[in-house]
């Protein structure tokens, strides 16, 4: 393997603990329940919408997914809830994970098949399709590193960054270079007036400043893929604040993306019986290695 191949491998499939995949699965599959029961709930009423208002999507045509009907959406919901619950436990991770992934593809594409497509689910869809590829992973696999795990984690990170970076690209494509100096946020605030929204909307200079911050941050987001330590945490804190702000002002939360940001964190360090045991057994040895003068 030459140097270029090695650096590509280290970037796309770094050696990461299987425990991080195990933890990320916990968060992602628990989030699936939240998503289908609380956030993307349109597919159930869509089952009663006459087919004339169904517009479909290319992915649904390719997979021969039918126009939603009353019973179909209810069976689909059950399939997603059961498969994500099994995948949450870590059992049969490939089978349960892929059933859940295809089920969610059907569910979310149903929600978007009536002429309103959101872009907050891209990273989650990536996560649902790549997490099964890492195979069996336990929360106690803190010391077992795997490139398959690293690739799955990296793909989720790339999915999350793609949303930010391409949002800025889309603003230039559809809104033009003057987007940040326009009144798009004013428009959004006027549609969903709440809390400090109307006050912000009445200050055009503030609106422009917020739009510039969003645009610059989105364009520079790919940098996050190379950040480490404090710089990485600072960037993640910024994005958490960004999503909190849009939630407070616009009631738009982008939670499906936020849950994928967890892939940037060393989740394997979360307290778990296996990791706690390791700390306890490691302590006496660490103490005895220190010179007596330092005790």
């Amino acid at each position: 393997m030459n140097a270029v191949e090695r650096s590509v491998e280290n970037f796309l499939a770094p050696e990461l603990p299987l425990a991080r995949v195990a933890w990320l699965r916990r968060f992602v599959y628990a989030f699936v329940w939240l998503d289908v029961l609380w956030i993307v709930t349109d597919p159930i009423p869509h089952g009663d919408v006459p087919p004339s208002l169904y517009r479909g999507l290319e992915v649904r045509t390719l997979l021969h997914l039918p126009a939603p009907s009353h019973d179909y959406v209810r069976v689909l919901l059950a399939v997603i809830l059961v498969s994500s619950a099994v995948a949450f436990t870590g059992r049969v991770p490939r089978l349960a994970g892929w059933v859940c992934a295809v089920g969610m593809l059907d569910w979310v594409s149903n929600a978007f098949a009536y002429s309103k497509v959101d872009h907050d689910h891209f990273a989650l869809m990536v996560a649902l399709f790549v997490l099964p590829t890492a195979g069996r992973a336990r929360l106690s696999d803190v010391d077992v590193t795997s490139r398959a795990a690293g690739w799955a984690i990296r793909m989720v990170q790339i999915g999350a960054v793609s949303i930010y970076f391409l949002s800025a690209n889309a603003k230039m494509r559809f809104g033009g270079w003057g987007w940040a100096n326009g009144a798009t946020l004013t428009w959004a605030l006027s549609r969903r007036p709440n809390s400090i929204g109307p006050w912000v909307a009445s200050h055009p200079a503030l609106v422009h400043a917020l739009q510039w911050v969003a645009l610059v941050a989105e364009f520079s987001s790919p940098v996050v893929l190379w950040l480490r330590g404090k710089a990485l945490y600072a960037a993640l804190l910024f994005w958490a604040g960004f999503h909190l702000t849009t939630y407070v002002m616009l009631k738009i939360h982008f939670l499906p993306l936020v849950v994928c940001l967890l892939s940037f964190l060393p989740l394997e360090r979360l307290p778990h019986p296996a990791t706690l045991r390791r700390v306890v057994t490691a302590r006496p040895r660490a103490a005895s290695e220190a010179p007596s003068s330092a005790r």
Binding site: L57, E58, V59, L105, V108, S109, F112, V117, D118, H119, D120, H121, F122, M125, S162, I163, L166, S167, N169, A170, K171, R173, F174, G175, G176, G178, W179, G182, A183, T184, L185, T186, W187, A188
Partner: peptide
């Protein structure tokens, strides 16, 4: 979709 343009709030308002 899922590879659709990330176009929410991408249009410009005068």
């Amino acid at each position: 979709w899922p590879f659709a343009p990330m176009s929410q709030y991408a249009f410009s308002v005068q």
